[in-house]
Design a protein around this nucleic acid. Structure first.
Lengths: 254, 254
DNA sequence: CTTGACCCTCACCTGGCGTCATAGCCTATA
DNA sequence: TATAGGCTATGACGCCAGGTGAGGGTCAAG
């Protein structure tokens, strides 16, 4: 009657692999209309339609078994299933969004630190306005205007002289901490300096405690940071990370 | 010197399972600092830090092997890795978005068709205003005001009489197509009726060709639609789907 | 009759563990 | 000191959606 297709033909028609068709057969998702005497699979038009449906729902992220149940039960309420599925998709999308934000924040911290602390790049001489503008534009695309405004105000409002002053403050704090490395990371003296460090960081970004802890992590995670601090004094990166973690812990208790 | 932790302790501290720690050991991602004579694992503070990093990157969706390489190679550029990873995340997010839109469109079409064509629900008697309002509210949440305005205007602006008239038109077209099923789906006569059908659909939704093709797919994907058209004449669902696909193809060529 | 394209089944591999099964270790109490 | 319990270890199978063969049968053309 109507046309019949071998596995290969159906595979090429539909774009799925032969192995996948075997698999669908195996799990009872798509059994060929005919099995010849020699066990060859022959698919008919109905099978093609079913495969279309399978691919549609697979695209949407349904599991193969869900699809099987969905297609096999004629009483199944497709609308409800789609609605449920939509919820899952939205959740996954939100998750993606928050992950992206985390990456962005991490990158922002890294770039921020680069800009603020790596002196090799002539930052003492002239403030790299171009870079700041670029950064602001990027932020603008990703976040809401408020954030941009804050970032812009913090960074570019500063004059060259102000910036140099803030930079010097940061150096002083860092060196002071380096001097205290014979003590424990949560020694009160160290913690006092860390408090200053935290305040210093907040010159540039609003930096809640969780973020501050993350910044500390970054000091030991990212080779550039690690190198920067290790150059000042070996072990400083780890020491600061631990001290910052303690600081975050202690402050969060209240 | 510093504290040591058994598997269970570290598991409880970090929130991962013992099995996971075993696994991380197995793949060389996190080997305990000490293995006692009796093969017991003992983790030290450094291991804790490393685990933190592992969890951080795992959260972000890096694979365990990627994390291992990333943490083991001190020259590894974390910023670049994060940037690459960000791209992947954004792509997945976009994919999610398009899937959600597909689901939404499917649901919209289903609801639309339900409202328009399933006569059992007394639609001839009284227009289900409550349902329309609900539908409009949902659209309102998902899309921009323009779309809502359009949807609202198309649907609820119609008087009961107008609606009945449009409904009759739809029936006429559908029956006309059913009469032409002995011809090929892309026969000019069929295509002429399909053109009317497309115009009819656009009474309710702006329905570009891709969407129209999708609607055809829906006729064979969704049991409710299939049942509706099969009841008019066996094979009509498939026939219309094919004819609609041809129509979309043909129209798009110009 | 052979060649080459196609078909079959069986079975192991991926990732990130969960879930047993089986057995050794350690400590406290009867 | 025996035993109960809680901890530890290793090893192996399972999940999901197939990928990637191995090893062997089938079919049409030359």
């Amino acid at each position: 009657m109507s046309k019949q297709y071998s596995v290969k033909q159906l595979a090429e028609l539909s774009g799925v692999t032969i192995r996948a068709l075997h698999h669908y057969d195996h799990i009872g998702l798509l059994k060929p209309a005919v099995r010849t005497e020699k066990k060859y699979r022959l698919y008919d038009h109905g099978d093609c339609l079913r495969l279309q449906q399978v691919l549609f729902y697979r695209e949407l992220g349904f599991s193969l078994l869900e699809i099987r149940d969905l297609l096999d039960d004629p009483d199944f309420n497709t609308a409800v299933a789609l609605h449920d599925h939509r919820k899952k998709l939205v959740q996954r999308q939100k998750h993606m969004t928050s992950l992206i934000q985390t990456v962005d924040r991490t990158l922002a911290l890294m770039e921020g630190e680069d800009t603020m602390t790596l002196k090799d790049k002539d930052l003492y001489q002239g403030f790299d306005r171009e870079k700041i503008d670029r950064w602001n534009r990027e932020v603008e695309e990703k976040y809401d205007p408020e954030t941009v405004e804050e970032s812009r105000s913090n960074l570019s409002k500063m004059s060259k002289a102000q910036f140099a002053e803030v930079q010097k403050q940061g150096d002083r704090v860092t060196l002071a901490i380096a001097e205290l490395m014979d003590k424990e990371p949560n020694d009160p003296d160290v913690q006092a300096q860390i408090k200053l460090h935290h305040a210093w960081v907040e010159n540039f970004y609003e930096c809640p405690l969780e973020m501050y802890r993350g910044l500390g992590q970054l000091y030991i995670e990212n080779p550039e940071f690690t190198a920067f601090y290790e150059k000042i004094k070996p072990g400083l990166a780890t020491f600061m990370a631990e001290a910052m973690a303690h600081f975050a812990d202690n402050e969060m208790r209240y």
